[in-house]
């Protein structure tokens, strides 16, 4: 994921994955969440999703749940650091949206 893009912007996939684990969720659930919320526009391959999840685990933006259970369905949940990242991304996008809206003459928001 190009999360080290200047300004700390997150990729769309990363943001959606983080959003999908505000409640505990597993691989399949995350994939379904993204496909549903983007109406099929964003589809992640299994290998890509696996890499993305591991990346977020490494960065400690998400963490595993149910570790003791050792069941196959490994679940993940967002960490405090992850929440910070989501919130700063929302701020960044909001600023961008308002600015872009202003430039085009205020079509979308007042």
């Amino acid at each position: 994921m190009r999360d080290t893009v200047k300004g700390g912007a997150l990729t769309e996939a990363t943001l959606y994955i983080l959003l999908s684990v505000y409640t505990p969720n597993h691989g399949y659930g995350i994939m379904q969440f993204i496909e549903k919320e983007t109406e099929g526009r964003l589809v992640l391959g299994a290998g890509t999703l696996y890499g993305a999840i591991n990346n977020l685990l490494k960065k400690k933006w998400i963490e595993p749940v149910n570790e003791k259970n050792l069941e196959r369905k490994k679940e993940y949940i967002i960490t405090d650091l992850g929440r910070e990242m989501v919130e700063s991304e929302i701020e960044r996008l909001s600023k961008l949206l308002l600015f872009a809206n202003k430039i085009i003459g205020g079509k979308y928001y007042d």
């Binding site: 994921m1 190009r2 996939a13 589809v43 992640l44 391959g45 299994a46 290998g47 890509t48 890499g51």
Partner: peptide
């Protein structure tokens, strides 16, 4: 070797450019 039930959708493991490149 990965096996999936054919649901009519293309079977892609890597959907991001950098993953395809590294493969």
């Amino acid at each position: 070797i990965l096996e999936k039930k054919n649901d009519g959708k293309p079977f892609e493991i890597f959907t991001e450019r950098k993953d395809k490149l590294s493969h």
